[in-house]
Amino acid sequence: MSDYTIVKESPLGGAEHEFDGVTVSEVVDQSLVMIAMPNGKAEEIEAAMSKSCGLSVPAMGQSTQSADGSITLWRLQKNQVLAYYAYESDDAEANIAERFNAPSAYYTDQSDTWAMIRVSGERSRDILERICPIDLDPSVFTLGSVSRTIMEHIGTIIYRDGDDSYVLLTMRSFGRSMLHAIEVSVENVL
């Protein structure tokens, strides 16, 4: 038993703000694991994921869900996918490797790399169009779409997880700047 206790902390301390028509809140319960697929191994890995979790590799910029709905896969790069799923321990890498049962893939935990902020509500797109260069028209950026871009000079992943709900991921150290950017948008628009 160690004399010292280490505790965890989310990037933004669980920030949550409600505005008229928009809610801005930190997502604190999700893990993110990168799964790299070596050349020539993609089919083998997809077969294993499919068998173990009912997952298929999504098209670029899209996502798929596991059979039980617990894991979402994002495809932002050709040779890798990202598993986004509700998991709060610090061993997501091992956990997902075990669940996928696809040993020829390389797994890298990214859960602590990102600050995740959800912007939701009927005015969410009006807020986001002030910072997001991606076309968020609902018919273009359909439910489950995911994209990596740059907002306010900050590299950002945007994922649409509901009709009027978007999750923004920025590198953890930028979290405060991104939250501020969203709040300024709210101030400027609402």
Binding site: I6, V7, K8, D90, S111
Partner: peptide, 17 residues
């Protein structure tokens, strides 16, 4: 190096230890 979620806690623990 520790997962960043523990970063704040680690500096405090190191200083205490």
């Amino acid at each position: 190096a520790v997962p960043t979620r523990y970063g704040d806690s680690l500096i405090r623990v190191l200083m205490e230890a």
